[in-house]
Design a protein around this nucleic acid. Structure first.
Length: 172
DNA sequence: TAGGCCATCTGGTCCT
DNA sequence: AGGACCAGATGGCCTA
C-alpha cells in the first residue's frame, strides 16, 4: 500500500535523523535538518515562528513528534472508518467506485433530508403520542422539521437526492 | 499534464 | 501536562 510505504520511509528518515544527530544539541539545527530532509519548502516566517516555539532537546522533540504522529494517524484511520461506515448505509448508484469524502457527506445530508421528508409525509405530522407522558413526539418532530426547513416542499429533498445520485453516476 | 483526492506530517490551540 | 483536534503544507496516485 502506498501510504504504508511512504509512512515507513518517513519514519525511517526520522529514525536516521535521530541517529545521525546524536551529537547535536541545538533544537534549531534539528528542525532545520528535518525540513531539509523532508524536502519541504514552507514560507520562512512560519518556519521561524515554529523554530522559536521549540524548547525541548532535539531527541526529546523527535520522540514526542513520532508519538503524536502515530496518534494522529490512528485518529485519521478512525475518521476514515467512520466515513466507510457511512458510505455503507447510504444508497447510491455508483457502487463500483468509492464515494469521495465530500460526496459521502453531501449525499448523507440529502439522504437524511429525504428520509425525514418521507416520514413527515407518511405520518402527516402526527406520530403517536407517548403513553403516559403526554408528549406528542410527532408534533415535536414536525415542529423541529419545520424550523429547519420552513415551508420548503418535502418532495424537494427527494428531487435533490435523486439528482445528486444521477450526477454522481454521470461522473463515473 | 493538470486537477482532484487522499494520507501523512507538523505546529498551534483547545480541552480534560 | 498531555492528548485530541484542527488546518496548512506536501507529495503520491489516478483519471480525463
Amino acid at each position: 500500500m502506498k501510504t504504508k510505504t511512504r509512512a515507513g520511509r518517513r519514519r525511517l528518515e526520522a529514525d536516521q535523523d535521530e541517529e545521525s544527530q546524536g551529537h547535536q544539541t541545538s533544537s534549531e539545527e534539528d528542525t532545520g535538518l528535518l525540513y531539509k530532509e523532508n524536502g519541504k519548502s514552507k514560507n520562512q516566517d512560519s518556519v521561524k515562528s515554529k523554530r522559536r516555539k521549540q524548547s525541548s532537546s532535539g531527541k526529546e522533540h523527535s520522540v514526542r513528534r513520532l508519538e503524536s504522529n502515530e496518534r494522529e494517524r490512528q485518529r485519521m484511520h478512525k475518521l476514515n472508518n467512520a466515513f466507510q461506515a457511512l458510505r455503507e448505509v447510504i444508497p447510491h448508484v455508483r457502487a463500483e467506485k468509492k464515494l469521495s469524502k465530500i460526496e459521502t457527506l453531501t449525499l448523507a445530508k440529502n439522504y437524511i433530508n429525504t428520509l425525514t421528508a418521507t416520514i413527515i409525509n407518511m405520518t402527516s405530522g402526527s406520530l403517536p403520542t407517548t403513553q403516559g407522558t403526554g408528549t406528542d413526539i410527532g408534533g415535536k418532530f414536525y415542529q423541529h422539521y419545520q424550523q429547519q426547513h420552513g415551508e420548503e416542499d418535502n418532495d424537494e429533498h427527494l428531487k435533490k437526492y435523486s439528482t445528486q445520485i444521477h450526477s454522481f453516476r454521470q461522473g463515473s
